[in-house]
Structure formats: structure tokens, C-alpha cells
Design a protein around this nucleic acid. Structure first.
Length: 229
DNA sequence: GCGACAG
DNA sequence: ATCTTGTCGC
């Protein structure tokens, strides 16, 4: 894994970079990418802060069957500390490397975290979208600093995720009686489409198959990694 | 000033 | 994210 030479080192530089990237995000998109053969990518990252090692995984799923059709990983050094609001600077170098190792281009990339739902409207999924030019979507497990009313108990029920008065995403119930997931648009996709995709990716579990597969893969990659000589 | 805070 | 065993329930 190679961290770009100009990658931000400080929180101040990272925030400045976000200001530069924000106008480039396209938080809406055309209709569903549901033609036969549509490929959905899932990405995730695991850490071993003791050894300063990071492992990223990118998996490609067939949107119709949810079968994994390709996998790739990337291992390297941690590029940035975890700071709420700056997660992208920690995860992106490894994620971009893993994605680049796929032989096919996904129609959509699903991230573990947020997109528009971000203090400065530029979460991990937004960054990834701008860097790759691909449609991206963020699906998080926690409401972060945002508020919401509990959605109805049935699968498919949702309520707005709010940053003060601003709707920034949705709390979506993917399994009846189970805590919702929190989604927001990244790049080149709209919220309704993001909701439909999320439901399509959760036929059996609360979390989408993309993140389940990517999570499993990056953990295996991290466990398998031997300290560099 | 202090605590909260995606992963 | 990560540290971590058993345990309640379908």
C-alpha cells in the first residue's frame, strides 16, 4: 500500500482538503443500476494499532444474486489517526489500493460509515466517490451525532436522519425488530435509490452483504499479515 | 472548560 | 476499530 505523498498529516490540513473536495460531490444520480450483471462493491478496513498495520478489503458482488464474484485486499501502514469527522483520511489510502486491485469496475461502492451525513457534509463515502468518480453510498451502524425518530418495526420502515433541522440521510430498518442502519448518499446517487439498494443488499441480516463480506475479508487479511522484515 | 463523537 | 465468554433464543 502506498500513501499519496501529499496526503494530509494534520487535522487542519485534512479539513482544508475537505473544503476543496466538497463542491465536487454529486449527491444525486440517475435510476437504479439494476441491469443484468450489475456489480456492487463493498469495502472495509481492519486495524492493528499495536503494529501500525492496516488491511483493507474490496469485494465485488453480483447485484442480482449477491454472490461474491471477486475479492482484493491491500495491507500497509496506518496513514492517519482516527478523528471523528476525518475518518476518510484514515481509511482511504488502503481502500483505494484494494479497489484498484479489482479487475472490474463496480457500478456502485458501499462504504462502512457516512457520506453526506457528516458535520461538514463530506464523510467517507463522499471522499471515496470524488476520488474514484464512482457512485458511492454510506451505510453506518451508529447514528453518530445525528438524531432520528425510531422507524416503524417492519423491514423497509425509515425515518429521516437529522443534523439539527437538516435531513442528511435515513435510519432504515433492514430487519424487523432489529436496530436500524443509518445511510446517507455519497456520490452520484439519490437517497431513494440508496434506500432501495440497501434493502436489496439485506435479504437476511441487518448489515448489507457487501460490508459483511468485506469485513470478514479484511480481518482475515490482517490476521494473515506477517510483520514486514 | 468538558464530554460526545462514523470506524 | 479493538479488547473478550458465555449465553439466551429461534
Amino acid at each position: 500500500m502506498t500513501v499519496p505523498a501529499d496526503w494530509p498529516t494534520t487535522a487542519e490540513a485534512a479539513r482544508a482538503e475537505q473544503e476543496r473536495l466538497r463542491p465536487l460531490v454529486v449527491p444525486e444520480g440517475p435510476e437504479p443500476p439494476r441491469r443484468p450483471g450489475t456489480l456492487i462493491a463493498g469495502v472495509d478496513v481492519a486495524y492493528d494499532d499495536e503494529r501500525d498495520v492496516v488491511a483493507a478489503a474490496a469485494v465485488l458482488l453480483d447485484y442480482a444474486t449477491l454472490d461474491v464474484v471477486e475479492q482484493a485486499t491491500a495491507v500497509g501502514r496506518v496513514a492517519f489517526p482516527y478523528l471523528p469527522g476525518l475518518l476518510a483520511f484514515r481509511e482511504l489510502p488502503a481502500v483505494l489500493d484494494a479497489l484498484a486491485r479489482l479487475t472490474r469496475t463496480p457500478d456502485l461502492v458501499v462504504c462502512d460509515g457516512y457520506g453526506l451525513a457528516h458535520p461538514r457534509r463530506l464523510g467517507l463515502a463522499s471522499h471515496l466517490g470524488v476520488h474514484t468518480g464512482l457512485p458511492t453510498l454510506g451505510i453506518a451502524k451508529n447514528p453518530f451525532t445525528f438524531t432520528h425518530q425510531p422507524p416503524g418495526d417492519h423491514r423497509g420502515a425509515w425515518t429521516p436522519l437529522l443534523d439539527g433541522p437538516d435531513p442528511v440521510g435515513r435510519a432504515l430498518r433492514t430487519r424487523q425488530g432489529v436496530k436500524p442502519v443509518f445511510l446517507s448518499v455519497g456520490h452520484r446517487i439519490g437517497l431513494d435509490e440508496a434506500t432501495a439498494v440497501t434493502l436489496a443488499l439485506t435479504p437476511a441480516y441487518r448489515l448489507p452483504e457487501t460490508t459483511r463480506q468485506a469485513d470478514s475479508l479484511c480481518r482475515r487479511a490482517l490476521a494473515t499479515t506477517t510483520p514486514a522484515p
